[in-house]
């Protein structure tokens, strides 16, 4: 991607806290991310590592008593972390849209699919003109736009399906409808929270192709949250791997996939099954650590096969993980591992 673009969405040192009985838990800690126009960023990690919390923090929708504790979210250079409720609502859906994992439960069962897409146009007043009783043509214009969007996301016979209920759609169609709702207002950023997890493999591929097309045609920037490193590798320009609320490795996709520099990323890669290979999948031993009870130093040290005592001392910054990392800055390849300098990845057995 062209690094000369000004950043569209920037997270600076974002930290999200949840108070619990055992003290405050940092579900997201000191996350820095930069998203440029037209860029696709993958946010990868196991369940509970804070991926979805990052998305909700961006939208200012952290459920109380949780809160964004530190840091900023910048949208086109404007700090949107401390906006009022009303100002934030104008950004949600209009500037930053989000799609979810389970499309059926995300669509409102009481309304026609077409009406739900139109709702987002109405909500953000995408069609100018006085309200409905005064301007009857406005509804027609909105409907026309809805049909357009439905067509764009590949819902066949949109006129006929305008008046279908969500449960009358197949899973893939539901996800398309959800994407249509997200796209109706032509947002600059699309946040996709595991959008393909609930779908069949063939449908997954179609949805991914659809998102790629949207990205190319409208230059919509996308943050894809997934636990599927394979999907991220195929779809994203950049990948950020999260572990226990922190980014442990970030960089251009090919570098992260081909030369993972953090043992966790390497472990995730070894968990991906390959068609036609009889290589045994090697799971990462253990589970995601309890966020209220993290080990000192590197959070991954408990599960890391090459951890040394020094891994539990002090605080680790992201380190340059490729020769040009420092030069490229946030577009470069970085990893949060103390042993980066001397750590060599064990070769994958092909």
């Amino acid at each position: 991607m062209n690094d000369t673009h000004a950043p569209l969405l920037e997270l600076r040192n974002l930290t999200t806290m949840f108070p619990t009985r055992r003290g405050e838990v940092r579900a997201v800690e000191a996350v820095n991310l930069t998203l440029r126009k037209g860029q696709i960023l993958g946010l990868v990690g196991e369940s509970g590592c804070g991926k979805s919390t990052v998305l909700l923090s961006i939208l200012g929708l952290i459920a109380k008593p949780g809160r964004v504790d530190k840091g900023q979210v910048l949208l086109e250079g404007r700090d949107i972390t401390h906006l009022s409720g009303g100002e934030m609502r104008r950004i949600r859906g209009r500037e930053i849209a989000m799609i979810f994992q389970d499309p059926l439960s995300t669509l409102n069962p009481a309304f026609h699919v077409g009406e739900q897409i139109r709702e987002s146009l109405r909500l953000h007043h995408m069609m100018l003109g006085p309200p409905w009783p005064l301007d009857r043509a406005k509804k027609a214009r909105e409907k026309k736009r809805v049909i357009e969007v439905m067509q764009e996301v590949g819902i066949p016979a949109p006129e006929a399906r305008y008046k279908a209920y969500p449960h009358q759609f197949s899973g893939g169609m539901q996800q398309r409808a959800l994407i249509a709702i997200g796209l109706a207002c032509q947002p600059k950023v699309l946040l996709a929270d595991e959008p393909t997890t609930a779908l069949d493999v063939t449908i997954q591929a179609q949805i991914v192709a659809l998102m790629r097309r949207i990205n190319q045609e409208h230059h919509t920037a996308i943050i894809l949250v997934t636990h599927d490193l394979g999907l991220a590798a195929e779809f994203c320009d950049h990948i950020a791997v999260m572990y226990a609320g922190r980014i442990v490795e970030i960089g251009p996709t090919d570098q992260v996939i081909e030369e993972p520099r953090h043992p966790y990323t390497a472990g995730l890669l070894r968990c991906i099954p390959h068609v036609g290979e009889r290589r045994a999948i090697e799971p990462i031993p253990g589970n995601v650590p309890d966020l209220a009870d993290l080990p000192p130093g590197c959070a991954f040290s408990l599960r890391c096969d090459s951890a040394r005592p020094v891994c539990n001392e002090g605080f680790f910054r992201l380190q340059p993980a490729s020769a040009d990392a420092v030069k490229r800055g946030e577009g470069g390849h970085w990893a949060r591992c103390l042993r980066l300098t001397d750590y060599q990845m064990p070769a994958l057995e092909d």
Partner: peptide
């Protein structure tokens, strides 16, 4: 249910979600 969260995400206010969703 998730459609409520989706409505929040799309920029609806609490009043509107309660009444209209």
């Amino acid at each position: 249910r998730e459609y409520v969260e989706a409505a929040r995400v799309s920029g609806q206010s609490h009043t509107r979600i309660m009444l209209s969703e």
